[in-house]
């Protein structure tokens, strides 16, 4: 049976992990490869690396890091952050990334989704959508959730599926950082509307939140950052408990 996926997300700046992590076994807490290896050994199902640096040197540094990750990690990983052209994608895939996550650039230039899907296949195209509710309607936001648009979340999600996205990574800006649970109502609607997998992001605080997002939110995968980095939730414990609660999980 296909299992639900647990995905730790690592923020990267100039080749280093950004957010603090609480791993005593890490010799170098800023080394993304070392952290990624620990997660892979703990049976994380995939990893996401989000590059938040904004320098000119960014692309080259990121490609080098991606190659280093691919060299050492034996599970799939996605790379995102500032990807805006087919050439960006080509470089990252060539360096060893399995998938790329495209966010703002897809909104500004939807054609990018179909260009990448045609050239490299839908399986490597994750479209990340940040959204929050404005007067009860879910609106897509850009630039890490800072810039609102008039685009409806559900319409945009359908469109990216049509354009060739292989998966959608939906982050609720209303839930992100709250540790109060995922946006399960919106997630369930996305899952019902679409035939491609949906990754839930934003709001993870405890094990029950993961169970809820798989059961109520019908999510195919759940992504979180700080609860894993600070060991508030340990992945082996999380997976054991989810499995005990009837969720299909790889242990």
């Amino acid at each position: 049976m296909l299992t639900k996926r647990i995905i730790p997300c690592l923020d990267i700046k100039n080749g280093r992990t950004v957010k603090g992590v609480n791993f005593v076994e890490l010799r170098d807490a800023g080394d993304p490869v070392e952290l990624a290896k620990i997660y892979a050994d703990e049976y994380a199902d995939e990893l996401v690396f989000l590059d938040i640096s904004a320098t000119e040197e960014r692309r080259k540094t990121l490609a080098q890091l991606v190659e280093e990750i691919a060299r050492h990690i034996n599970i799939p990983f996605t790379v995102g952050g500032g990807i805006s052209s087919v050439e960006d994608v080509a470089l990252l895939l060539k360096s060893g990334a399995d998938k790329v996550s495209i966010n703002s650039a897809a909104v500004k230039n939807p054609q990018l989704i179909s260009d990448v899907a045609k050239r490299f296949g839908s399986q490597c195209v994750v479209v990340a959508i940040d959204a929050k509710q404005i007067d009860g309607n879910w609106k897509v936001h850009l630039v890490g959730g800072k810039q609102p648009t008039d685009i409806d979340l559900f319409e945009w999600a359908k469109k990216v599926q049509e354009l060739g996205a292989g998966e959608i990574l939906f982050t609720s800006m209303d839930h992100d950082g709250t540790k109060a649970g995922f946006a399960n109502e919106a997630l369930a609607k996305l899952s019902d509307d679409l035939h491609i997998p949906i990754i839930a992001s934003g709001g993870a605080g405890n094990v029950k939140h993961f169970e809820d997002t798989f059961k109520l939110g019908k999510a195919d995968a759940a992504l979180a950052a700080s609860v894993f980095h600070f060991k508030e939730i340990e992945i082996p414990d999380l997976k054991k408990e989810l499995k005990a609660n009837g969720i299909s999980i790889r242990i």
Partner: peptide, 11 residues
Amino acid sequence: NLKVPQVGWNT
């Protein structure tokens, strides 16, 4: 009726 593509870990 399942999601297509199949993405993830299966037995």
